[in-house]
């Protein structure tokens, strides 16, 4: 792997890991506050799984450049994070959280299935493993979207509002990184354009089946992972507060 490809892969792994970490953070905010005990348990599963995936991607990056995953997570500033804005949005109500998780799960399951055929074997192996639990999440969140969409007037109104707000943000999942084309050319990562096509088909069908209307105006669509919402700074201030409280500490 030449240096340019290696750097592109490091950037890609960082973006993947940051997405999972920030999404896991938002999901974990529900722990202890879910609508019923059983769903508290379910969402805590999803949060653990996404956090586990973040650890996998940081780990693959570490194998390339020797970076420390905890330093990356707890000692980078907001401007250095490369997650999409979609995952930063505050958790909102249960409809907002379930819909975001669903849209992300479809993307992730599709991306992972394709990445399992990566020419970079550490990535292929990791993707094949991670996609197993992603398939279960997807069944879970897909069931929730249908039930909220076809539940009461209130639940439909809430999940429709979430869709109107999220649809534009979700498109950022398919915006390639500046050097991602190099990785696609080498067969290291899937082509996001193809993933997007499958994602659109699948989500559109399920959202319609769930009685929801796709927004006519997609709204704001973030294009660069260098940019963030106003929420990321506060999220990180909270997430990193303990680790940064004692910078001398070698072990937590």
């Amino acid at each position: 792997m030449n240096e340019q490809v290696k750097q592109a892969l490091i950037a890609k792994l960082t973006a993947l890991a940051d997405d999972e970490l920030i999404l896991a953070h938002r999901d974990s905010e529900w722990t202890g506050h879910g609508p019923i005990l059983e769903e508290d348990i379910a969402l805590a599963n999803i949060a653990q799984d996404e956090l586990g995936h973040a650890t996998v991607w940081y780990g693959l990056r570490s194998a390339l450049d020797g970076s420390d995953p905890d330093r990356l997570a707890f000692f980078r500033d907001a401007g250095e994070f490369r997650n999409c804005e979609f995952v930063e949005l505050p958790r909102g109500d249960w409809a907002f959280t379930m819909l975001r998780q669903y849209l992300f799960d479809v993307y992730e399951a599709l991306w992972l299935s394709a990445a399992a055929r990566s020419t970079y074997s550490p990535l292929a192996e990791a993707a094949a493993k991670v996609v197993r639990e992603e398939r279960f999440h997807l069944q879970h969140t897909q069931a929730w979207v249908e039930r909220l969409g076809l539940g009461t007037e209130e639940s439909r109104r809430r999940i429709q509002a979430a869709l109107d707000e999220q649809w534009g943000y979700a498109q950022q999942l398919f915006v390639p990184l500046p050097d991602e084309a190099l990785l696609v050319a080498e067969g290291i990562v899937p082509d996001l354009a193809e993933v997007k096509e499958a994602w659109l088909e699948r989500t559109t069908e399920h959202l319609r089946k769930s009685g929801l209307e796709l927004p006519l105006q997609p709204g704001y669509q973030p294009a660069s992972r260098q940019m963030h919402t106003e929420h990321l700074w506060s999220l990180l201030a909270e997430m990193q507060s303990t680790a940064r409280w004692d910078a001398e500490a070698k072990v937590w």
Partner: peptide, 30 residues
């Protein structure tokens, strides 16, 4: 009992501790 500990999930100082704490608070729900 989920509440006093759950409040620290978002402030856990390492990826490992965060994972453990989510699993622990989840067990309490269980």
């Amino acid at each position: 009992g989920m509440l006093p500990e759950g409040a620290w999930i978002t402030r856990a100082p390492s990826l490992k501790r965060k994972m453990i704490l989510i699993a622990k608070v989840q067990d309490e729900a269980g």
